[in-house]
Computed example of a mutant assay.
Amino acid sequence: MLTNDHQQELMLKKLEQVVSALMEERPVFKEALDYGETLQDLLDAFQRNLSFEEFNALSDEQLKKHSRGIMALRLLGAIGDSFTPEQMAIFEDAVRRK
Results as ranks from 00 to 15, higher is better:
2 L>P: 08
2 L>I: 12
3 T>F: 05
4 N>S: 10
5 D>H: 06
5 D>M: 09
7 Q>F: 01
7 Q>Y: 01
8 Q>K: 14
8 Q>C: 08
10 L>D: 03
10 L>R: 13
11 M>N: 01
11 M>D: 00
13 K>C: 02
16 E>I: 06
16 E>S: 09
17 Q>S: 09
17 Q>M: 09
18 V>A: 01
18 V>D: 00
18 V>Y: 00
18 V>L: 02
19 V>M: 03
19 V>Q: 01
20 S>K: 12
20 S>L: 09
20 S>H: 13
22 L>G: 01
23 M>C: 10
24 E>G: 07
24 E>P: 01
24 E>N: 07
25 E>H: 02
26 R>W: 07
29 F>L: 05
29 F>V: 04
29 F>Y: 11
31 E>H: 14
31 E>K: 14
33 L>H: 03
36 G>C: 08
38 T>S: 15
38 T>V: 06
38 T>H: 07
38 T>Q: 07
39 L>Y: 06
41 D>C: 08
41 D>H: 10
41 D>T: 14
43 L>M: 07
44 D>G: 08
45 A>Y: 13
46 F>A: 08
46 F>E: 02
47 Q>C: 11
48 R>H: 10
49 N>I: 05
50 L>E: 09
51 S>M: 06
52 F>C: 04
53 E>D: 11
53 E>L: 08
53 E>K: 12
53 E>M: 08
54 E>D: 13
54 E>G: 06
55 F>V: 00
55 F>E: 00
57 A>I: 04
58 L>D: 03
59 S>A: 04
59 S>K: 10
60 D>G: 09
62 Q>W: 05
62 Q>K: 11
63 L>K: 03
63 L>D: 07
66 H>M: 10
66 H>W: 11
68 R>M: 14
70 I>K: 13
70 I>N: 03
71 M>Y: 01
71 M>A: 07
72 A>F: 07
72 A>V: 03
72 A>S: 14
73 L>Y: 12
74 R>L: 12
75 L>V: 00
78 A>G: 14
78 A>Q: 15
79 I>D: 08
79 I>W: 11
79 I>K: 15
80 G>Y: 02
81 D>F: 06
82 S>L: 09
83 F>G: 04
83 F>Y: 11
84 T>A: 05
89 A>E: 10
90 I>Q: 15
90 I>K: 11
92 E>R: 14
92 E>L: 14
93 D>Y: 07
95 V>H: 00
96 R>I: 11
96 R>F: 08
96 R>N: 15
97 R>N: 12
97 R>E: 15
98 K>T: 11
